[in-house]
């Protein structure tokens, strides 16, 4: 038993077993206590919803996925540039950092109605909300990566007469990579939250919209199905970011 717990397969077997146990318990509780479907649908009912609605769900999942990825991509570029700027320039840091913190504390869901007024409903507010939620994490982490370069590491290059650009290329940039990749797995989840929030408020497409519309017609199994798809999508996106991180910054110990 102890040997199994230390083995690699335990990492897969244990969470899958827990999920199965949870689903079985869930099914039993719903059946034993005769809980109505519009309060809590049993896993079997959710499965039935999948066979009825799979086409619609898949179609809307693509919308959510593309909104998330577009928002994430814009957040990545903006976050990198901002991070380099405030990480390298003391003036930019002093000027921009308080503004960024202030902006970041605004609950982004409050911005969605405004975005909908400016850009109409649909893709644009979803992408923008995803971007707005995600870029701050990336910017702050990249800046931190640049700011924490050991002085001696820079001295090695300075003593060779390296220019500022060279010091950035050889030390600053690679040093900030682990910070960047650590932030990506958080940022992708934030982008995901952003696009779903926006879809629930200002869209007629996407999983967020589908949940709202299913709830309003009391099709609770469909709403639950969407939630489960969201959970799986979120985990896959997170997993991809972790895999990329482990491959690119394997030298971090």
């Amino acid at each position: 038993m102890e040997k199994f717990l230390k083995s690699k397969s335990a990492n897969y077997v244990l969470p899958i077993a827990a999920t199965v146990v949870l689903l079985v318990l869930w099914e039993l509780v719903v059946r034993l206590f005769k809980i109505p479907e519009f309060v809590l649908p049993a896993p079997s009912a959710i499965l039935a919803a999948w066979s009825a609605w799979s086409g619609v769900v898949i179609q809307n999942s693509w919308v959510t996925l593309s909104n998330t990825l577009m928002g994430f991509a814009i957040a990545l570029v903006t976050g990198l540039l901002l991070g380099f700027l405030i990480g390298y320039s003391k003036v930019a840091y002093t000027t921009l950092y308080p503004l960024l913190v202030g902006f970041n504390t605004i609950p982004k869901v409050a911005l969605v109605p405004l975005l909908a007024i400016w850009f109409g409903i649909g893709t644009i507010p979803a992408v923008l909300t995803a971007f707005l939620l995600a870029f701050f994490t990336i910017a702050v982490n990249v800046a931190l990566g640049l700011a924490t370069v050991e002085l001696e590491m820079q001295d090695v290059l300075k003593a060779l007469g390296a220019t500022k650009v060279e010091i950035f290329q050889k030390v600053g940039f690679p040093h900030s990579l682990p910070y960047l990749f650590a932030s990506l797995k958080i940022a992708i989840s934030q982008a995901f939250i952003g696009s779903v929030i926006s879809e629930t408020v200002a869209s007629n497409k996407g999983l967020g919209y589908l949940i709202v519309s299913a709830s309003s017609t009391f099709d609770i199994p469909l709403a639950f199905l969407c939630l489960i798809v969201l959970a799986i999508m979120g985990m896959v996106l997170y997993g991809i970011c972790v895999a990329v991180e482990q491959r690119t910054v394997h030298w971090v110990r």
Partner: peptide, 12 residues
Amino acid sequence: GIAFQNPVLLPW
């Protein structure tokens, strides 16, 4: 050429 007490090799 310079070498410090801390070898400061670039970890990447």
